[in-house]
């Protein structure tokens, strides 16, 4: 399998007043197609900055970044926007759905900025298919405030998938969710990954990282460990376990 993400000696330095802050201090990382990688780290470890660079929202101050065969570290603002539009799908901690806009329209959003013109019917069809993948086709007309947190995150995942990206990027995707819905979202990720989707996820929760296949741990802007997940959790199994635990204390029927 070829490398979808190839980072070589990537650095990011922020100038805040007199002091230079090296948020990312020389990261070399290769992620191959079909991988499910969790980037772990405490806050201030540089994982979010690295994620912004991988997500083409930010440019490295030094080093080389190649995404799906394209050298993106040299691209300008508009070109980066096009890369985000076509090769990347984003899932954020705070869902970041447009308020007062239906789930379907939220999912259509990335396609509105794609150069290849699609008819309204095609937009709708593709958005509905993406919602089906995350199991929310029946909620297409609902607005975000009519959906639960887990459902909102699944709409966001559908939005990330709609343009058939090369990589799905998730920044603390379970940060705003309870245990049960977190596992549900991980279930969606595992299903997608089983279908061949490359996923890169940033998290600070070890148990969430356990659903991925590979854990990259960061500290002070550098990678300190990079290991495959040995005791991988399976979302369906975990859900049953949780259900039983809740039943035991009569939280659930």
């Amino acid at each position: 399998m070829s490398a979808v993400i190839q980072l070589t000696g990537v650095e990011k330095t922020y100038h805040s007043g007199e002091i230079d802050v090296r948020a990312v201090a020389g990261v070399t990382l290769e992620i191959r197609a079909g991988e499910f990688v969790a980037i772990l780290g405490a806050s201030g470890s540089g994982k979010s900055t690295l994620m912004n660079i991988i997500g083409c929202l930010d440019r490295p101050t030094a080093g080389h970044y190649s995404l799906d065969g394209t050298a993106v570290s040299a691209l300008n603002r508009d070109a980066l926007a096009d890369v985000r539009n076509r090769k990347l799908g984003f899932v954020f901690q705070g869902f970041n759905l447009l308020a007062r806009t239906s789930a379907l329209e939220n999912v259509e959003l990335p396609m509105l900025y794609t150069h290849a013109g699609l008819s309204r019917a095609e937009l709708r069809d593709r958005a509905l298919r993406a919602l089906e993948v995350v199991g929310l086709a029946d909620r297409a007309g609902h607005h975000p405030n009519q959906l639960s947190g887990g459902q909102q995150q699944r709409v966001a995942i559908a939005r990330a998938l709609v343009n058939n990206p090369a990589v799905l990027l998730a920044d603390e995707p379970t940060g705003n969710l309870d245990t049960r819905t977190s596992i549900e979202v991980m279930g969606v990720f595992q299903k997608l990954n089983d279908g061949g989707m490359t996923i890169v996820m940033v998290t600070h929760e070890l148990d969430i990282a356990a659903y991925s296949r590979r854990n990259v741990v960061m500290r002070d802007g550098q990678i300190i460990s990079d290991t495959p997940v040995t005791k991988r959790l399976s979302a369906p199994t975990e859900l049953i376990r949780l259900q039983e635990a809740h039943a035991a204390v009569q939280l659930a029927p």
Binding site: G55, L57, R77, D78, A81, D82, R84, N85, R86, F90, N96, L97, L98, A99, L109, P110, Y113, T114, R159, N163
Partner: peptide, 16 residues
């Protein structure tokens, strides 16, 4: 502002 951020994240150009 947040909406603008979302739009840009999913591929909107400044022009858009």
């Amino acid at each position: 502002t947040r909406e603008i951020g979302i739009r840009m994240a999913v591929g909107a150009h400044g022009r858009d």
